[in-house]
Simulated scan of single mutants.
Amino acid sequence: MTQPLVPTGRRPANDGPKAAARNREALIAAAREIFASQGLYAPLSSIARRAGVGQGVLYRHFPDRDSVAIAVLEENVRQVEEAAAAEGALLADVLGVLTWHLTDSAAFLGLLHSNGAAGHAATLAHARVLSARVEAALRRTLPARHRLGGGDDLMIAVGMVSGATSGPARESRERRAAAAWRLLGVEVGPVRPFGGRHPTAERG
C-alpha cells in the first residue's frame, strides 16, 4: 500500500527512537497474530515480514523466541491491568479481557511452563512476575465473599481455564475457555481485548 506523502522536515523515516518504538510495537502485534494462527514455532521471519521490517530489526528488539513471547505476554498483562483500573470495572468484564488473552496466547503459554521445567529460570521468574500482576489486577475487582476469594483459588481457576484453551482454531479455544468458566460457576463478561471489539463482531 502506498504511504501518503508528508511535507519535507516531517518525514518519519529517520526519527530514531520514534521509529524504533513503532517497529517494536509492530513486531509485538505481528507476533500476536502469527503465534495465534501458526503456533509458537512459526518462523520468526514470518513475524518480521508481517511487521514490515527486516529480520535484523526483529533481532535488535528480541534476541530470541522467548523474548518475543514475553513481550506479547507483557502486553496482555498491561491490558488486563488497564481493564481492572477502568472506572466502574467489574470482575466479569476483567475476566472477559483476561480470557481473550488466554485464548490468544494459548499457542505459546506452554513455552513458559516448559522453559521452567527445562531450567530456564529467568523466563520462569518473569512469568511469575506477570502472573502476580494479573492476580493483583483481578483482586482489585473481586467482590467480597466471591467463590474464588479464598486462598489461591483465584489463580488456580485462571490456570485451569488456561489449561483448557487447547485447539488449533481460536473459536474452539474460546468455547473451551467459556465452558471451563461455566463449570467453575464463574460469570465472565464479553471476551474481547480491552477497549476493542471481538473480531467476529466486525464481520457480522
Rank of each mutant, 00 (worst) to 15 (best):
A118R: 14
P190C: 05
A179R: 13
G195S: 08
E187S: 14
D152V: 06
V129P: 00
L138Q: 02
S131P: 01
P143R: 06
L184K: 06
A125K: 10
G116N: 07
A122W: 10
V161R: 03
A164H: 10
L148Q: 08
A157H: 00
A164K: 07
F194R: 13
H146T: 10
G189K: 03
D153E: 14
R128E: 11
R182S: 12
R182Q: 13
L130E: 04
N115L: 12
L184Y: 09
R128W: 01
A144Q: 08
T165A: 15
R147Y: 00
A164V: 07
S166P: 01
R170K: 08
G185K: 06
L184S: 05
T123V: 15
G189P: 11
R170G: 05
P143S: 07
R133E: 08
T165Y: 02
R128N: 14
R145C: 04
A157V: 06
V129H: 08
R197H: 14
H113L: 11
L183R: 12
G159A: 11
R140G: 02
T141H: 07
R176S: 08
R147C: 13
S166K: 12
H120W: 09
H198D: 07
A180L: 01
F194N: 13
L184P: 04
L138G: 05
A136S: 12
G116D: 08
S172G: 04
T123P: 08
R192N: 03
E135Q: 13
A122G: 12
A136D: 12
E135C: 02
G195I: 14
R192K: 12
A118I: 02
R147W: 03
R182M: 07
A157M: 09
V158T: 01
V129Q: 14
A137Y: 00
D152P: 09
V188D: 03
G196I: 02
E174N: 06
G167V: 06
H146N: 12
L184C: 04
L183I: 05
T123Y: 13
L130V: 05
M155H: 02
A179I: 07
L130C: 05
G189M: 09
A117S: 10
R192W: 06
V134H: 01
R197C: 07
M160V: 15
D153F: 01
R128P: 01
V134I: 13
A121F: 13
V129R: 12
R140C: 03
A127Q: 10
A180R: 00
H198V: 05
G167L: 02
